[in-house]
């Protein structure tokens, strides 16, 4: 159940297949690696402690003319898994993808005379522009609140820093602003939560798909995976992910922000040209 999932999975099939092939290769490799070292009659008990590994299918997101988002596959494996089948439910896994930080202004409207006006605002610093959370089960069933807060897992624990003194707002008002940031981000498709989005495809292999919207910011992202068993954190891993955009739209964006004057002049010249071409075409017939 991926909240805020859009219908743009045309490339996802191919990607998924690719990822599965890759995941299978990883599995074979792991099996090959562990076989010589493990005792030939390994029972679950004499294995070493579990550890988790993870990777992502896409590092560079190409934006095409019809780009409305893409889907990436997150896959990983548990070393020394003690569960016998994908369905046994022995482990819980939570994956968090977040980055890059930005500064936002949250505004609240109130009625002034007849109309609704932004009357209060709060600057919120170091908020991840994107935050996705995928897990095997609803978050509150996986671990207790303190543990989740410590590792910043779930919408309740999205990191953000509010200016010192809280801008003169009460704790309650600050909480409302905080919730508004998360609500608006989720509405824009930039914050997502998928409670059952992560599933095992074998005793040690797991995978999840993640929809990345077209408005995803570029930059460095953190991908973190947490392995739980009955509310205890067994292992965690962090990986860097750099999201780049390519394509014409990206060029337009880069030019607009890096060379705004040149961009403006080009926009005007394009408009003049469009106007002249149109009048030339329509004069002939």
């Amino acid at each position: 159940m991926d909240r805020g999932c859009d219908n743009h999975a045309n490339r996802a099939g191919a990607l998924g297949a690719l990822a599965l092939t890759f995941a299978a290769a990883v599995a074979l490799l792991l099996a090959g690696m562990s076989a010589p070292h493990a005792a030939p009659v390994a029972t679950g008990l004499d294995r070493g402690p579990e550890s988790i590994e993870i990777d992502v299918s896409t590092r560079s997101i190409p934006i095409e003319a019809d780009f409305s988002g893409t889907r990436i596959v997150i896959f990983g494996a548990i070393h020394n898994s003690r569960q016998d089948a994908a369905e046994s439910g022995y482990y819980d896994i939570a994956v968090v993808i977040w980055g890059p930080n930005e500064t936002l202004v949250a505004r609240q409207k109130s009625r002034v005379a007849f109309i609704w006006v932004n009357t209060r605002s709060l600057s919120v610093h170091d908020v991840p522009a994107y935050y996705a959370f995928i897990s095997t089960r609803p978050i509150d069933e996986i671990a207790d609140k303190a543990l989740l807060a410590r590792y910043r897992i779930g919408f309740d624990n999205v990191p953000m820093r509010i200016e010192e003194g809280g801008g003169g707002f009460s704790a309650e008002e600050l909480a409302a602003f905080r919730q508004a940031v998360i609500r608006q981000k989720a509405k824009a498709g930039l914050y997502r939560e998928a409670d059952y989005g992560l599933s095992f495809s074998g005793p040690s292999l797991f995978r999840a798909t993640l929809d990345v919207p077209a408005n995803v910011p570029v930059g460095e992202f953190k991908v973190q995976a947490f392995l739980f068993h009955q509310g205890t954190l067994l292992s965690s891993t962090t990986r860097k992910l750099v999201i780049e955009k390519r394509g014409a739209e990206r060029l337009v964006y880069a030019l607009a922000y890096d060379h705004p004057f040149v961009y403006g002049v080009i926009a005007v010249l394009a408009a003049v040209l469009a106007g002249l071409i149109a009048s030339a075409i329509f004069k002939k017939d």
């Binding site: 739209e249 337009v252 961009y263 403006g264 926009a267 005007v268 394009a270 408009a271 469009a274 106007g275």
Partner: peptide, 26 residues
């Protein structure tokens, strides 16, 4: 105005403008 908005506010969307122009002139 276009150039000023582009330099001061970065709010000129050239892709949108091109689409509007195409529809508009026809």
């Amino acid at each position: 105005t276009t150039i000023l908005h582009a330099t001061q506010n970065q709010t000129v969307d050239a892709v949108l403008a091109l689409l509007l122009m195409t529809g508009g002139v026809i």
